[in-house]
Structures are given as structure tokens and as C-alpha cells.
Design a protein around this nucleic acid. Structure first.
Lengths: 143, 143
DNA sequence: TATATTCCTACCATTTCGGTATGGAGGTAG
DNA sequence: CTACCTCCATACCGAAATGGTAGGAATATA
């Protein structure tokens, strides 16, 4: 499995916020209820998005979270690369992985690099706004 | 990470066997030494390939393993789908996963299905024989 | 029969996954 | 100024997956 619940939930939060953009700051509690995710777990995921300035958090009464950019400005890839620490399909391609001593003779390395490219290009080709479109238009990003 | 060491090692074993096809049955010990993988761990991986009739195992003195088909008959995808129990990028697409109650309203499901398709098509487009070609030809499957 | 080699079943340490619990710190309305 | 509501930080925890290890039984050859 490439994408854990963390990444999937992060995406659902972002979509939820797009769908309630007009309401200003949305409290965590509301999102958690709508998305049926535990408040505390969701909190830890949202924290990552706030630190990366993908969301803006406002404390105090009437506070909550909202997007910092327009939905077309976020790619799915950029969101997932934040929450999943790596989207690399194999450990030898992960950032900070110690260079494999067999890399030079490795028959499979170029293939893994190709797979990595395919995955990232697919995910970067989809915008957050694409995921919120009415159902009928939901096929344009399924290759 | 999508592909664990199991899948990667399986692929390396298959490649090793292609490169020593002419020598008949190749003992586990030889493969393990060449590939620098523990004999016992490799054994558990090879077992999977034998059970699926991708390899033929012969016991006793002079025994070992060999391919059951020509290298062009194996796709990388077919090998990986055996050793990794699933190549699904998200858990909700795994075989035997309990159907998600939110599937109908899920904004991200079609995207995950698209990703799954992209991954499988890439891996099924590469043959075992492609991985054994001389180095200079190693770019034809990197998109 | 001695030896090489595959098969089969357990077991295990470490890490990751998917959370929960507790306690603040900081803003805002009244 | 205080009560309330929100974000922020840290610690902990059970279950499953990962990446192996160990011991021995079955089988074929010489």
C-alpha cells in the first residue's frame, strides 16, 4: 500500500474545506463529524497541513481552519507528499535512503524510477478542484 | 512504500535465473550468494514462486530451481502481484477489503482507481526479458 | 547410505499504522 | 477579566506488517 489513511484523510479534509469555503473558518469538530474521523487523530493530520501553510488555522471562539489558496492551486501530489513522508514505490528511492551499493549493477533500478515518475505525474496532474466537481464530470482524470 | 523487499528480491531471483538459464537447475545457495540475500529469507520468497508454477523446484543433489517459461512470458506485474499480496495503492482497493460505506459519496475513489490502473499498466508493460537486456538498452521502458 | 538440496512450520524483533489520552497555550465574546 | 472555545505538543498503546531466523522432514543423486 502506497497511501495510508493519513494521506487519504488529509485529502478528504481539503475537499471538505473546499465544499464549505464560503463559511469562513471551519472548526475541527465539524470536519471530524462530517468525515467520520476521530477529532484527535484528525487534529494531528491537520497540524501538518497548517505547518506547510496549506491551511490557515485561527484560534479562539469562532475559529477553525480554511484554505490559504484557491482549490486549483493544490495538486493532489503536493498534499500527499506532505502527509505521507514519501511516495516512493520502493525504499531505495526514498529521500534520505542510504545509496544502494548495488545501484550500478541493479537491473531493476531504472524500472523503479520509471514507476516513481508515472505515479508522481499522475498525482500531480490532478487538482484539488478536480475532486470537487459534480459527479458526472468525475471521469476526466481517470486514464 | 508500495513494493517491499519481498517483491524486489523475487524480481532479482527471476532475473538471476534468466541469466543462468543455460545451466539447468540452479541451487538456492548460488542465487543467495550472488544476490547477497540470506538463504533462509530467500527460501520463503522462492516458495511463493514455485507454488505459483513460475519456477520449477527439484530436490536432492543436483537440484535447484529453474524457470518454467521463457523470459518473455513473465510480466513484472505478474511477479509482483504474487509476492506482494496486493499492489493496490490504497487499502480500500485491496482484494477482500470490506466495501467502504462511503464509496458512493467518495470524491476520491475514482482517482485511486485511476492510480491503480496507471501502476498496473506500467508494471504489466515490462517483461522479465526487458530487465536482462544489455545496459545500453535499459531506457526503453522508462517513460 | 551419505550428502546435497528442496520443502514445511514455527518463532521473533523491530517498525509502521491507526489511533487515544492528557494537558496546555492562546484568542475572543460577554 | 474570565469563561469558553479553539489550536498545539507530547506521550503512550495495541495490532499488524516487515524482514528476517531456526529446526527439521522429505527427496533425489552418487
Amino acid at each position: 500500500m502506497l497511501i495510508s489513511t493519513k494521506g487519504r484523510y488529509a485529502l478528504r479534509v481539503m475537499i471538505d474545506l473546499v465544499e464549505h469555503q464560503s463559511e469562513g473558518y471551519i472548526p475541527l469538530k465539524e470536519i471530524a463529524e462530517r468525515q467520520e474521523i476521530s477529532e484527535k487523530y484528525l487534529e494531528s493530520i491537520i497540524k501538518i497541513l497548517v505547518r506547510a501553510k496549506m491551511l490557515d488555522g485561527l484560534r479562539g471562539k469562532g475559529g477553525g481552519y480554511k484554505l490559504t489558496k484557491a482549490p486549483e492551486q493544490y495538486t493532489v501530489g503536493s498534499i500527499l507528499r506532505l502527509t505521507e513522508e514519501s511516495l516512493a514505490p520502493v525504499s531505495c528511492l526514498e529521500e534520505g535512503a542510504l545509496p544502494c551499493t548495488r545501484a550500478a549493477e541493479c537491473r531493476t533500478l531504472p524500472m523503479w524510477q520509471g514507476l516513481d515518475k508515472v505515479i508522481n505525474e499522475y498525482l500531480d496532474g490532478i487538482l484539488l478542484s478536480d475532486l470537487v466537481l459534480p459527479d458526472s464530470a468525475g471521469d476526466n482524470y481517470v486514464i
